[in-house]
Write a protein that binds this DNA or RNA. Sequence first.
DNA 1: GTCAGTGCAAAGCTTTTGCAGCGCG
DNA 2: CGCGCTGCAAAAGCTTTGCACTGAC
Lengths: 142, 142
Amino acid sequence: MAWVDEAATTLRGAGYRPGAAGQLVLEHLAAQNCCVGAKEIHDDLRRHGRTVGLASVYRMLDALSEQSLVQRVDVGDGIVRYEPARRSDHHHHLVCARCHGVAELEGCEVDEWLGQAAREHGFTPTGHTLEVTGLCAACQAA
Amino acid sequence: MAWVDEAATTLRGAGYRPGAAGQLVLEHLAAQNCCVGAKEIHDDLRRHGRTVGLASVYRMLDALSEQSLVQRVDVGDGIVRYEPARRSDHHHHLVCARCHGVAELEGCEVDEWLGQAAREHGFTPTGHTLEVTGLCAACQAA
DNA sequence: GTCAGTGCAAAGCTTTTGCAGCGCG
DNA sequence: CGCGCTGCAAAAGCTTTGCACTGAC
């Protein structure tokens, strides 16, 4: 099932009924492969002629976040980013401590360990973020 | 070597010379085992009669962050938290998507995989954060 | 004497909240 | 008809920046 559909269904199940604005945000998110900020989404939609309130973007992101349909990604530049939580395309991030640049790190080998460890705490995991801090190639050279 | 000393040394090496305020922030951080926010640090120091500017706290955190001496922790409530990056006491977090509560998850089994994967990207890792999102026991029951 | 760190105050930005309007059930 | 999503505008924080001051080299 495509992420958009799954998201819409889950949201509806949670009593949230996305309207026009919500649908646009959803579709825009689905088109992203890596993290985007709220303002970025808002600007992009506007640029395409879609009138969407910034507040609606935030509201939608909140709802999605609560259902674990998106993952928050904190790069360290003060802007909160989100990315669709797909089972496929599950990846992590290499975040440079100097320039705050982000690179994707494919693959993930923590799921099993994590799931078990979390459940031992009575916690039901629905996803996770893993950010590696360090220095990117460019900043090392500098 | 204690974290405070290592931090002070590293900072000095980076050309940053912590004064009275910096020292206080450093010591306060060292006394924490889990994440604290900037404002929290500021308030605590004030409460103990130490006059430290909020700006100094942020400046110190920035410097520490750039040297990877602290780890940013994003819980999802809009407040950026930091915790000292010690080799011992390396842990991760279980973050509830509903109530934003945080629990510690001891242990870490990703270092080896991570180090190698990161280096393949020309990235030099100095640390990492791993946040597990899901539902805490309390929110599941509700 | 110079230069970096500091505190205070003001500014900046992202994010949140309030409120009237509109559309879908 | 009612309830909830929407947009706009205003408000609320957290964080950053500017500036004069102080202390260390």
